[in-house]
């Protein structure tokens, strides 16, 4: 049994060859993407950095008050002040820029694919297994081709985050649209709606809470990629955690980790309530 009858299938070398070919053939495309993504992340970071920390904290707390509740607002205020006090303000803003960029791209890619898949069965049948593949493949694996295509830094981090985070947005967009009761769809059909009217006036508005839940999940997933992304040179809180792990600094690692948790809770509560407010 030790010796296989079939020689080992050279999957690894095939993938290597394919990635090499891609890197060379689409060099211009990848370079373009790199420049654009870098510009977005850096631009966002620059803007955030330009605002004095205290003012930004107050703005975010007020936003939390408006979208969620007094409690969340208070948590935002204290949590962010703690992060600033611990000296992770800059790292947090870098991470925030990375996460927001990933989420924007996730929505730009995920929403249309989700809508398309919800309307056409064949598209759905193709998209679903790809999503399964993307979600079950260990996230580290995406980093390797990402480095090839986009070298090191924040861009491969964003790309890996998007690949990792896009499935929930697509899935829940499909689900949200499909969950619209059939009699409501029948009614819109019976009155003579076009496909576009049905989508914009009925399906998307009714699917919004579900779609927002998907985007919320995408935000959480891309935040969870922060540490992994730091391995390819993405700056931010992830880099602090990664450094602490490699240098076995328990205290620092805990501080940076705590900052990520605080960020996660704030982002989660804010986005959760955007969906609910609409309902």
């Amino acid at each position: 049994m030790e010796e296989s009858f079939i020689p080992k299938i050279p999957v690894a070398s095939w993938i290597d060859a394919f990635v090499d070919w891609l890197t060379v053939t689409f060099a211009i495309v990848f370079d373009g993407i790199t420049i654009v993504l870098e510009a977005i992340v850096n631009g966002m970071n620059t803007v955030l950095m330009a605002i004095p920390a205290l003012i930004l904290i107050i703005i975010l707390a007020l936003l939390a008050w408006k979208l969620a509740s007094k409690g969340i607002a208070l948590f935002t205020l204290i949590g962010l002040l703690l992060i600033q006090n611990l000296g992770y303000w800059e790292g947090m803003l870098q991470t925030l820029s990375l996460v927001l960029t990933s989420v924007i791209i996730t929505v730009i890619i995920g929403l249309p694919i989700g809508v398309w898949a919800s309307q056409k069965r064949t598209v759905r049948q193709i998209v679903t297994p790809i999503l399964d593949f993307m979600q079950t493949m260990p996230a580290f694996v995406y980093l390797i081709p990402a480095i090839f295509f986009f070298s090191i830094g924040v861009v491969p981090g964003v790309v890996a985050s998007v690949i990792f985070a896009v499935p929930p947005t697509i899935r829940l967009t499909i689900l949200g649209i499909q969950q619209v009761p059939t009699d409501i769809i029948e009614a819109t059909e019976a009155f003579g709606s076009t496909v576009k009217q049905r989508l914009l006036k009925v399906q998307l508005p009714l699917a919004t809470p579900t779609i927002m839940a998907g985007i919320n999940q995408s935000i959480m997933l891309s935040l969870s990629m922060v540490v992994i992304a730091s391995m390819v040179g993405a700056p931010g809180l992830g880099a602090d955690v990664y450094r602490a792990v490699t240098q076995i600094q328990i205290g620092t690692g805990f501080e940076a980790g705590l900052a990520i948790v605080v960020m996660a809770i704030i982002l989660d509560r804010l986005t959760q309530n955007i969906g609910k407010k609409k309902n």
Binding site: P181, D183, I184, E186, A187, A190, F191, K201, P205, L206
Partner: peptide, 11 residues
């Protein structure tokens, strides 16, 4: 032709 539905089917 317009139609009225059993479960109302309002938006």
């Amino acid at each position: 032709i317009s139609m009225v539905f059993q479960k109302f089917a309002l938006l």
